[in-house]
Amino acid sequence: MDYFLLILGFLLLIGGIIGSVLPALPGPPVSWLGILCLSFVEGMEISSLALWGSLVVTVVISVLDYVIPAQGTKRFGGSTYGVWGTNIGLVLGLITPIPLGFIIGPFLGALIGELLYDSRDISRALKAAIGSFIGFLASTFLKVVFGLVLLIWGIVLLVQKFSAAVLI
């Protein structure tokens, strides 16, 4: 059972990193499930405080994944129309079968939202859409880094487990 949980844990950790880039998988929660699996492996010492703390960080990052692109729109001069357009575009981009819809959706959503707000100011609408795209990139970077941290944590636990077994 330990080997099954060990393999499943590392597959989930790797899947979480992949899911941080691809929209089909929720990257941080999948990575956290990998750490949870590893916590049940005998010899993998993970405190409940570390598990709960990493769960809180996972939830925060998952929420920020939706907030950061909208804030990027707002910081680049977008209105509430652009922020709503970003959020709607992100959801539509995730569920439509368009290649890279999760990237195109927030950009187009912000652009369309800003054009609905003021159709004469195309440069401001483009600026807000670029802010949405930069926010998306920042959000993706945050998820990938978190996934890598959890993967490294899992590798350290694995090394500790097997180095302890060799010493015995």
Rank of each mutant, 00 (worst) to 15 (best):
L8N: 03
K143H: 10
G9I: 08
V67A: 09
I68D: 01
L158E: 10
L8H: 05
V159G: 04
T140S: 00
L5G: 04
R75L: 12
I155M: 15
V21A: 01
G27R: 00
I61W: 00
S62W: 13
L51Q: 02
G77F: 07
I152N: 07
G82C: 07
G78Q: 05
V30D: 00
L92I: 13
F76A: 07
L11D: 06
L157N: 10
I46Y: 01
I103H: 00
L11F: 15
L22G: 03
L137W: 12
G82I: 08
G113A: 03
I130V: 10
L51G: 08
I35V: 14
I130P: 00
S62I: 11
I95T: 09
R120E: 08
G43I: 05
S48M: 13
N87M: 12
V41S: 03
F133C: 02
A110F: 12
L22V: 06
Y66Q: 05
F133T: 13
R124H: 02
L90I: 07
Y117L: 04
L142G: 07
I35T: 09
L11H: 10
G16F: 01
L22R: 00
G78T: 06
P29W: 07
G9D: 04
V21L: 02
S54K: 11
S119E: 13
S139F: 15
V83I: 11
K143G: 00
F76M: 14
G27T: 01
S132F: 15
I61K: 01
S123K: 15
L64I: 05
S39D: 12
V159Q: 09
L111S: 11
K74L: 15
V91C: 10
E45I: 11
P28Y: 02
